[in-house]
Every structure is written in C-alpha cells, then in structure tokens.
Design a protein around this nucleic acid. Structure first.
Lengths: 340, 340
DNA sequence: TGCTCGAAGGTTAGCGCTAACATTCGGCAA
DNA sequence: TTGCCGAATGTTAGCGCTAACCTTCGAGCA
C-alpha cells in the first residue's frame, strides 16, 4: 500500500493553481485566457490579477497535446548567413508573429539530405504549417510532406508542374534577362561566375546559357562555378581564374553581389577599368552594390515580399480557406548601374 | 448514455499503434526508441521495422509533458541580419544539435521590451536552457529569468558584477585597443562613427573616449552616432556629415565594417586618399574588409567561438554539472591592414 | 534443490491542458 | 405561471507519452 513518489519536483504554477486561488474551475481560467469573450468581465479581471500575482505561464506542450494544434510553423531555409533568406525570414516573422504562430527555423545548409532530417525532426512538433525553400527535396522528404498532410508553401521558386502552393519568381527568367541586358548593351563575350551551386543558382545559369546560345555566343570556357559558399574573397579569386581561362571576356555576370564586389575589388588591383575593359553585373541587390565605385548593376529580388506573401498564403491554408492564388510570381527588378 | 464524440479526426500513428502492431506494450516501444539498451536486440529490430512501416513520428508535445523536459533551448539575439549573431547562431546550432537539443530562435530587434515579450512567450515552451545576448534586460525580464530557474548563459559581453555565466569579450577593451592602435600610429584627430546604438556599440564608444581622454585628445564633435541599423549606405552618408562638423579629422573609427566600407567608398568618390589623408578602421572582421582597396583595418571578434563556448557551457549546466569556468573571455584580434 | 538476482518487459497513473457535453440561472415571451 | 433560451460556468475524459514501480523468468551458485 506504499504511496508512489510524485513525479514532479517543485513545478511551476499551473492552471488549477490559479483556479484554486480564486475558487473557480480550471477550464474557466483556460477560457479567460484563450477565449476571453466567453467569460464575464468581472471574473476575467480577477483571473488576470491572479495570473499576474502567481506568475502563471501556460504550458505550450500541454496545450498542444490537448488541442492537437501547436501554433507553430516550420520554416526551412538553405542558409542563415545569406541575406536573401534572412530577409525572407524577417518577413515571415513579421507576418506569423501577430497571428500567434511561432517559427521553428531550420537551416538545411543547402543539403536536401539535411533538409529531410530536419523535416523529420520538426514534424515531431506537430507543426500547423510548413514553409520550405524551393522544390529540390529528397523523395523521402516529399513522402513525409505528403503523409503529414500539413499546409505547405514553397518559397523562392515557382512550381514547374503540379499545383503546390508557391511564392517566388522565375530564376531562369531573371538569369536570362540579365544576360539579355548585357547583350543589348553590346557585350559579346560574357562570362558567368557562380558559387554555392544550389538549384536557384543553376537555373539562373541555364537562363544565361539560353540567352547566349540564342545569340550564338555561348562559350563553355567562360563559365566558372565553385561549390563553396559565395563571398567577396571568392569573387576576387574567381576573377583571377577566369582571366586565365578566358582572358578575352568583356563582361561578367556574377551570380551574387558578394562575388561581384570581389570581382570589382580584384579588377581595381589589376588596374582593369570598369566598365570600359570589363563590365560587371551582380545579383540580389545587396546594399553595398549601390555604393561601390562604380556602383554595380544587379537584379533586385523581392525577398521580403516573398516571405510576406508565403506566410500570408500559409495563414490562409492553415485557416482552411482557399488562398486567392496558389502560385504567386513576384518578379524581379533589373537595376542598371555604372558597372555596365 | 450517448457516446461522446471522439476528439481526434484521422490522427497520426501513435506509440500504441506501433505497440499493437507487434503485440507488446507501449512503454516497450518508448524504451526501444529512447533507451534502446533496455530492450533486447531481437525485439528492438522488430520495433524499428514496425516504426518504419507505419511511419511513426513521435509527438514532442506529449513527450515534453510526460517527462517535464522539452529538449529545447531558447536563443535570443538582437538581430538576424547582422553577421555577428548569425555566425554565433551557427555555432550554437552545431553544438546543440548533436546533443539532441532544438533551438528556439528569437530576434529581439535590439529592443529589451521585445526581448521581454519573447522571453515570456518562449518560457511557455518549458525550455531546458536559455542563451541570451548581453546583460541589458528589463527588470521584468530579469525577474522572469530568475523565477524560471532555468540554466542561462549570457553571450557577447562579460558580467561586470555577479556571477552570471557568460562568454564573450570586453567590448570596452576592444574599443580602447583600436583607438590606442590609431594613436600609436600617430593619428591625433580620431573620429568615431556608430550606428545601431546597442549596449555593445556604446561600450566600444566608451573605450574610444577613454583612450582619447587619456591622451588629452578627446573632442565630442568628432563623434557621430545614428540609431538606425548599420549599412554601407549609412557609412557613406555619415562620412559626409562628419566632414561637415569635423573637417580636420585624420582617422575614423567605424563601429562596424559595413560603415567602414561605406566610408571608404565615399572617400573614393570625394577623392580623399586612404590612408594618406584619412585612415579608416572598422570592426568585426567581415569578409569584404580584407579585399577592399585598400584593405580595411578591423577588429576580428570571436563570434563563432562565443557561440560554441556558450552552448557548451549551457550543456554542462543543463546536465547539472559545474562548468570549468562560468566567465569565459575569448578576447579579440586587431587586424592591422592598409587603411591605417 | 532452493534461492537470489538481474535482464526484459508490463501496469498504472498522471504530466497540464482543452473538446465536448452538462448544468445553472436569470430574463422574457406567451 | 410555464417554458424556453442563451450566457456563464462546471464536469468528465482524454490528448500521447513516460516515471515509478511491479512481474516474470531463466541463469548462476551454494
């Protein structure tokens, strides 16, 4: 007949502590906090005071378990050190926070395998929604997503088939357009520098290639790709390598403003006149590119708006409503500046 | 005698589904997954197969509720768009992930009020530990931290009093040292440009002031501060303003490499020779500062190592062990380059 | 042979909360 | 006066999991 040891040490204040304190039932406290319109004004006031006094903090785990809703959203991005995704995250945060949703941020490091692992882990949290970057997932991850049957919005790219909800712009088109712009400016020997070979980078590269092929000007040796992350230093190094294997090029399309800045710096060191001897174009519209000498032509991408729109669409889906559109193309903006 | 409606729709596979499937009890499945050494080899294999087959995904909320451990850690940083904190986050991630802890990332946007709100929200998750930036918290936040009695490590700064666990370096010393360096180089009219006036920026400013006062060279009108976030563009604008109110200065201490780069670009436009007419020093050792022309003198800060050490210390504390030291000073590194 | 012991697995209860249904009670129309 | 309604609050039963304790059984040993 021995009493079993209780499981808790000194635990935190619970709902029923508050309830006992003012002599009502626990559910009333729960209601006062979550659906205040169902509780009378006077009682609600007393409850608020007691909550304050006792320092009551609700327990999310218990709430999630009882209500089968976690009020959390998984957000998977390839990198936290890339401004592109940081801006998108900020927008998502700004949209989901007021709606009462928490973000569970996962950094996939550009690896579909890591993404699958993160997805598996985060599904344990019973998220109410998922925001995921692009469409390049492992088969297992796709199965997981399907099986979980949780509202999901894909960001940054547009679905090429199927009707998966997505918000982004055409990476291919943007690469094509920037190359076209350089061609129209009269450049004929246009090189392409890329780092961090993620699917979006590759698609922009395809756009570049298509534009040059159409013009009959494509030369594989003017393309230089490096799998390591983009950085200013890498841009400088890539320029040196490029000039070894293709000394005659008259313009460089850098897949990223970091690279473009590094190319610019290296050209200064090598006394290559920009844009007279070599034109430089970057990608993503980073702050610095507007202020360098000369300022850098770049493609401004709607990162913040993508986050905003994707989160808004997800809120619709989670509320069981059909969003106005499930495929949102936010386009891009070519910023022609002094480097071309 | 009416049957009550069941609460679940088509819910996910649970532990007991797996248990029923192979004819053992639920607790055995739980053990096979969490403490595999307590289950026989053969049975464990059968369980693993069944888990695979049924696509079972554990429910974190239920586990957290039953075990009173959430296996999550709250990480509060002032900004997600500042490389400094992103690098720190990456390190934290790299340390906590293998130990089975999830990060709940909160972006306080440099506001103690927002920090307090985030803290309140995240405490609902019953985190097992907290990593928080600096020591500048609201009184209510301090009370919350104290009352929660959860292991907490402060990052980036060092406690000036008390024995709160902390990992960082002396912001004051680093500002003092960089100013001293400029003085030793012979500069006498040293200006200070700051943005995003967070406590760390302010402490570096104090170091700057102290060094100049000691040398009898402090002039308030050579200090220029702007509350908006640091950026390259802001650096360019601040230089213009500085030269209006203090045209005679011979060196600029920029609180941030972004600003320094903007100053450099603006000097190029104004045909001010660096470092002959004006020396420039930055802070934080960003990639670009090593590659600009001229390369920028800066102070490299151990952001990654801070994250690593803070997370490691937190793991110790969460395990109930006493860490080797609770006040870890990781120092900083002055990188003298061509701009001074 | 009888006993102990530890490995392997089971039983029970409950973590803190909320969905679903039940009850109470005052107001008000017929 | 009856009866009905809706606002305000209560009761009950779990959500899915694991801590704590319990049972079984075969190996090992005196």
């Amino acid at each position: 007949m021995s009493e079993r040891k209780p499981r808790t040490g000194q635990s935190r204040t619970t709902l029923s502590d508050v309830a006992n304190h003012i002599g009502v039932s626990a559910i009333t406290i729960s209601r006062a906090l979550n659906k205040p319109e169902l509780v009378s004004e006077a009682l609600r006031q007393r409850i608020d005071d007691a909550v304050q006094l006792l320092g009551y903090v609700p327990n999310r785990a218990a709430r999630a378990l009882a209500s089968a809703k976690s009020h959390s959203v998984v957000v998977l991005v390839p990198s936290l050190s890339n401004t592109v995704f940081v801006d998108t995250l900020a927008a998502i945060h700004d949209t989901l926070q007021p709606a009462g949703y928490q973000m569970l941020i996962g950094d996939t490091r550009y690896s579909p395998q890591a993404e699958e692992k993160l997805l598996r882990t985060y599904l344990e949290y019973n998220p109410d929604g998922i925001l995921i970057t692009g469409f390049d997932h492992t088969p297992a991850a796709q199965t997981l997503l399907q099986a979980a049957a949780i509202p999901t919005v894909h960001m940054m790219e547009l679905a090429e088939q199927g009707d998966s909800p997505c918000v982004g712009f055409s990476q291919y088109d943007s690469g094509y357009a920037l190359t076209r712009f350089l061609l129209d400016k009269g450049y004929r020997r246009i090189a392409f520098l890329a780092a961090q070979l993620d699917p979006r980078t590759l698609k922009r590269g395809e756009g570049y290639r298509a534009a040059l092929r159409e013009a009959g000007l494509y030369q594989p040796h003017r393309e230089l790709a490096e799998a390591s992350p983009s950085s200013v230093g890498l841009g400088s190094r890539l320029l040196d390598r490029l000039l070894l294997q293709a000394p005659d090029c008259d313009a460089v399309f850098c897949n990223n403003d970091d690279l473009a800045l590094g190319v610019l710096f290296q050209c200064q060191r090598r006394h290559i006149a920009i844009p007279q001897q070599l034109a430089i174009a970057g990608f993503n519209g980073l702050d610095a590119s507007a202020w360098s000498n000369p300022s850098l032509t770049t493609v401004d991408t709607p990162r913040y708006d993508i986050g905003k729109a994707a989160a808004a669409m997800l809120l619709q889906l989670m509320a069981g409503k059909a969003p106005a559109a499930t495929r949102v193309d936010l386009g891009y903006r070519l910023l022609a500046r002094d480097s071309t």
